[in-house]
């Protein structure tokens, strides 16, 4: 472009200048749709939530300023803390095993001698295709309260334990919901890890083999450190996802979803405040608190993962 400019006579230069201006206008015009929609329905509501969090409002009568009253109400509500507890417990049970199993599966799927690779990949990925509602419904039948439900049959006949009322007990609901989260997402994470493992250059392993490193050392010193960006990615997305858990418990418990507290999550608490109790101020306060909690957990988890990798590199030295 520069060489053209030098050669062209003056009137051409002018044409170029107007061309640049045209490009500028086009640039702004082409990114405008996103920003217009975002301002209207993304940014404005998000900011309005901060305003609403300080108001008392039932959706009909005028709002009245409530100071920190909403936050106080939420933070002193035992049900809110129960929902935080439930969310964390189900988050840990649903995602931690998922990431570990995902790593193992990805490692196995990458083995050179393995046949039927694409078959295993497709079947393990398939659960991701079912919607959250579908998964919750399938599991609500698998893990129903009946003594004859499949889950209880396995418990009583294969393990000799007592049947559990999966949809009405403190741990039953949490285990069932964590299992459905696990089932749906483990294949997804496996595929991401697999992409990660395949992106590691083979030379590293060859060099390690020459240096006399065994398979386990290769896994520990090459595969896992090289996988760090992918592990960080999945830890981040599953932490954020786990804090936002809503569909699975809501559909799993059906009519009881907003009256029972065994599986009430933070987002369910928010939804219940807003759309069942018409208390939009406290619901908005909950949304702000949720934002804080999500940020907190995301930062903590990322620190943990990063620290883990750093320590290992130290050992390596």
């Amino acid at each position: 472009m520069n060489s053209i400019r030098k050669k062209e006579p003056i009137f051409k230069k002018k044409r170029f200048r107007s061309e640049e201006k045209k490009d500028m206008i086009s640039g702004y015009l082409y990114i405008a749709p996103f920003f217009i929609i975002f301002t209207l329905i993304g940014l404005y509501p998000a900011l309005f939530s901060f305003y609403l969090a300080f108001q008392k409002w039932n959706g009909l009568s005028p709002m009245t300023f409530n100071g920190f009253g909403n936050f106080q109400l939420v933070l002193t509500d035992p049900l809110f803390w129960k929902s935080v507890y439930n969310t964390i417990i189900m988050g840990v049970m649903g995602t931690a095993p998922q990431l570990i199993v995902g790593l193992i599966l990805a490692y196995l799927l990458n083995m050179a001698f393995l046949k039927f690779k694409s078959f295993f990949r497709v079947t393990i990925f398939m659960p991701y295709l079912t919607s959250m509602v579908a998964v919750a419904l399938i599991f609500s039948v698998l893990f129903s309260n009946h003594e004859s439900s499949l889950a209880n049959y396995v418990l009583t006949h294969l393990f000799g334990l007592d049947p559990i009322s999966w949809a009405a007990s403190e741990w039953g609901t949490k285990i069932a919901i964590s299992l459905m989260v696990f089932w749906r997402w483990v294949g997804y994470n496996t595929i991401i890890y697999l992409a990660g493992i395949q992106s590691i250059p083979n030379d590293l392993y060859e060099a390690a083999t020459v240096d006399g490193a065994n398979k386990f050392q290769q896994l520990w010193y090459i595969t896992i450190p090289m996988m760090k960006p992918f592990i960080i990615l999945t830890v981040f997305t599953s932490t954020v996802g786990a804090m936002q858990l809503f569909s699975e418990p809501t559909v799993f418990l059906g009519a009881d979803a907003f009256t029972r507290d065994e599986a009430m999550t933070i987002v369910m608490y928010l939804y219940r405040d807003a759309f069942r109790l018409q208390s939009f101020g406290t619901a908005s306060a909950t949304a702000i608190i949720l934002l804080v909690i999500i940020t907190l957990f995301a930062v903590i988890n990322l620190r943990l993962v990063q620290g883990f990798g750093r320590k290992k590199r130290g050992v390596q030295k």
């Binding site: 209207l40 939530s49 936002q244 939804y271 807003a274």
Partner: peptide, 13 residues
Amino acid sequence: IPPQLGLIPQYFL
């Protein structure tokens, strides 16, 4: 931005 943050104002919009 978590999608739940603006949920209530979005609903009213």
